[in-house]
Design a binder for these strands. Structure first.
Lengths: 342, 342
DNA sequence: TATCGAGGGGCAATCGATTGACAATTGCGA
DNA sequence: TCGCAATTGTCAATCGATTGCCCCTCGATA
């Protein structure tokens, strides 16, 4: 006998309460309500209490749009990554989220699908919603980024651009440890399976590795990959093999995993004939046999720091332009002495 | 001789252009500008063109906050997942993003960190920003969700609530295939390593599996896990072992991976002594040896469909209340006949 | 008793865009 | 040449919250 759709609340939505409703309810003016809610102490304690109670009773929730209009502040930050499905960004996203919500800010994520054009469009679209933008591993060129930054504050992550504040990992410690381990194990000829040419981080990794290898008198070559993915790593297998090295650093773990899998398919013993080291220590790096060694960035910390710095930038409390966070080498089974297994 | 900070555009940000600027620039009134930009054809084609040109020239970008005030539409959707770092959500997020941006909407993500309380808070906070909410695998109870839905449209994903539209996978096809394969291989006693009791999907998986096992005259038991994570799976190892089954379905791939790893640690042969099947076919499921078999949901499609339905809900074009999408079994190395390896 | 000052609270303008109502212009036919 | 309708554009109110400025009240002090 019940009405068929009794459970469906879908239709009529009550308009949310405004400060005007509260004002009417308590017999004060809207401005007083605004003050009661935003400037504790400015009003008679009793009035303030009455207003607060009425607000609670009416289920008042501030309308962020309406507030944003006079203040120009939206209480929102935008985070743009090149590929949201890349496991690398997990911890970063999580760290950023935590820092943002601690500060009462809302984080908006977007994804540029590895396309510079789309990244620019997205960034511009997002800029009208947010108070500031976080660009992670941006593929834009310096000028475009400076352009964005002339509209609203921009914070770079895993990339440096003159004049723009940034939070980046210091790749040196991790690379030094890893290379040192390889050297001790007897490796002399190594390769770097590189990533996207436009990636700042790719450049840093290569340069740091190169300099160190030269310094330590090891031979090093760059092997290019076609994409920073597992497919890209698999596809580069023949070229890596042809390079005749005993160890390879891959641009990131995805590429390393692809290569690792392909080695297995072709019965190339890892780590016996080839040691493989990735970057980022993403989810799943420890899953294969052999488990992948990797150079880990403190990504969640990077996310947090980036948000916090952006927020302090919004306050006007700008610090220096760059924050460095240390990487470290996570050694797993994919590394051993060359030809250890005959 | 350059100024030290010449490259730093940080400081003075020019205020963005408004329709008033355009109006002044072209000698018409602001309302005309608004019409030119929003109602093509309403104005003299020549006027419209002039206004559009001026808008471009001044780099005009609409202020979404200002627009939201009179219209009540923000052009934004909110997506809440229980844990943003869970690889399960990758494809879902990506599909949702694609559908949203196709429609010119911006997607806001949030994460409830597996906590019902936080989920409610987050949902409420988000609601004032967005036109509609997508709740993925929500841990809230039906009443809370109906409450949210009385404020703004809500769309459920991977969960059903009376009266609320939903997009969910149909777990039957995948489970049927998987169980059928196990049966043919000779398995008779299986276990379900269950997930969070509050998870609707967990309930569906268990119930479907149970009914089918009973129907096919196989014995089945539920083994509880403490968390839907790799740790949770590893931790359940002893209980699974004690259950004396030859095959186990795990609530999701994370749990399955945890269990798989623990089997290896304890030298329990998979799939020889125990076949393992997960759900979701997440990134990395194919990485371990043996590679994990899994029942896959079309997550990216689910994300897309959910957004599209929510959008049509906003239009008033509401369809039915439920959309089902088919799952399928992805068979890999973690499944074989029992005791195949003696 | 007159004056001063501080605390408490209201008024009204403002942010940027939208939109219903209305006014001005134009063109056309009679 | 006049009138009418269609076309084109403007006015002004509105959305919800903020905030500078001003006024009122009341107690304290001279």
């Amino acid at each position: 006998m019940d009405q068929p759709d009794a459970a469906a609340p879908a239709q009529d939505r009550k308009a949310p309460a405004t400060i005007y409703d509260i004002a009417r309810h308590t017999g004060v003016s809207p401005s007083t309500v605004s003050r009661a809610l935003n400037k504790p102490g400015r009003l008679n304690p009793d009035t303030e209490r009455r207003i607060r109670e009425a607000a609670k009773e009416l289920g008042y929730r501030i309308n962020p749009m309406a507030r944003a209009l006079p203040t120009g502040k939206t209480g929102t930050l935008g985070l743009i990554v090149s590929d949201i499905t890349n496991p690398v960004y997990f911890d970063l996203v999580r760290g950023a989220e935590r820092a943002a919500s601690e500060a009462g800010f809302t984080l908006i994520f977007a994804d540029s699908q590895e396309s510079g054009e789309l990244e620019l469009t997205t960034a511009e679209r997002l800029q009208s919603y947010v108070d500031g933008l976080l660009l992670v591993a941006s593929r834009l060129d310096d000028r475009q980024i400076q352009g964005l930054s002339s509209v609203k504050p921009v914070m770079m992550v895993n990339r440096e651009v003159p004049g723009i504040p940034a939070v980046v990992p210091d790749v040196r410690p991790g690379i030094t440890d890893a290379l040192d381990q390889l050297r001790r194990l007897g490796h002399r000829r190594i390769a770097y399976l590189s990533g996207p040419p436009l990636s700042w981080l790719n450049g840093m990794r290569w340069k740091t590795l190169f300099d160190l290898a030269v310094e330590w008198d090891m031979s090093i070559v760059e092997v290019k990959s076609t994409a920073p993915t597992r497919e890209g790593g698999a596809e580069a297998f023949q070229r890596v093999k042809a390079a005749g090295v005993t160890a390879v650093f891959a641009y990131n773990d995805l590429v390393a995993l692809g290569l690792l899998r392909e080695c297995r398919e072709h019965r190339i013993d890892v780590p016996g004939r080839l040691s493989i080291i990735g970057f980022d220590d993403i989810f799943g790096a420890d899953l294969p046999t052999p488990a992948l060694s990797s150079i880990k960035s403190p990504l969640s910390e990077i996310g947090e720091k980036a948000v916090r710095r952006l927020l302090s930038e919004l306050d006007g409390t700008q610090g220096g332009t760059e924050i460095l966070l240390q990487t470290r080498f996570v050694s797993r089974e994919s590394v051993a002495g060359p030809h250890e297994v005959q």
